[in-house]
Amino acid sequence: MKPPPFSYHDPRTVADTVGLLASLDNAKLLAGGQSLMPMLNMRYVLPDHIIDLNRVDGLSYIKPRDGVLEIGAMTRQRDIEFSDAVAERCPLMAEAIRQVGHRQTRNRGTLGGSLCHLDPAAELVSIAAALDAKVTVAGKSGTREIDFAAFPVAYMTPALELDELLTAVTFPCWPRGHGYAFVEFARRHGDFAIVSAAVLIEEDKSGKIARASVTLGGMGPAPVRAAEVERALIGETIEEKRLREICESLRKLDAIDDIHAPASYRQQLATVLPRRALIKAHERIAPEGWP
């Protein structure tokens, strides 16, 4: 099993990368290679050109800024896993990333690669949806920002023009001490989730939910924000019986039916995992900040 023939390019700047993308036909960007390389080895993709991003300057960083965390597209998943800034400001991402593949794949795999590959069950894709991330994209006509909600346009297809590449992702951070939990059901550790739930909550002083973000991964081509449930949670206290009622509505969500699980199984998980995640998130709320 060998990759098909291609021409190899390893630009050093974003501008050169955009230039190559604009001038070459049938080109594929190579980030961490943890999805594209298997696809090449199995010849699912037959690009004429591979543009390797691994030597492009300035795409690997984790920058905490005012209320947000900006992460370069080529930042390795492993660096996110071990980042103090991520643990402090986006603990949801820190929790989810430990379930992305394995140590060996996280050492190479990148944030941008995962978001652009856009596997429906990928953990980082769900986290970007849960946190209302914005992606920064560079192309021939300059850079632009896209709300992550508008980034997936179809199954495994990001809203990128042919001459564009993802350069950075900005994650708005929730206040210190918020509740968070990422819970997934997978057959084995490191597998893609069959269904995952990413939850963020804030409670007021009386313990009532003041703000909630509930995201399901693995249900359809892109993660689903459960807006109805998010609204229903406002003003509620975390109590298992009530959560059961609220989350029951998630059974109506469309779900894919595949070799891993029938749709009805995913819909059942969609009612269970958010409830578990909400309970876990509530237990982690720490008004004084986490230890």
Binding site: L30, G33, Q34, M37, Q104, N107
Partner: peptide
């Protein structure tokens, strides 16, 4: 010093 799958990298890299 970091573990990686050598089947998922090109030698040029």
């Amino acid at each position: 010093g970091r573990s990686a799958r050598s089947c998922l990298m090109l030698a040029v890299q």
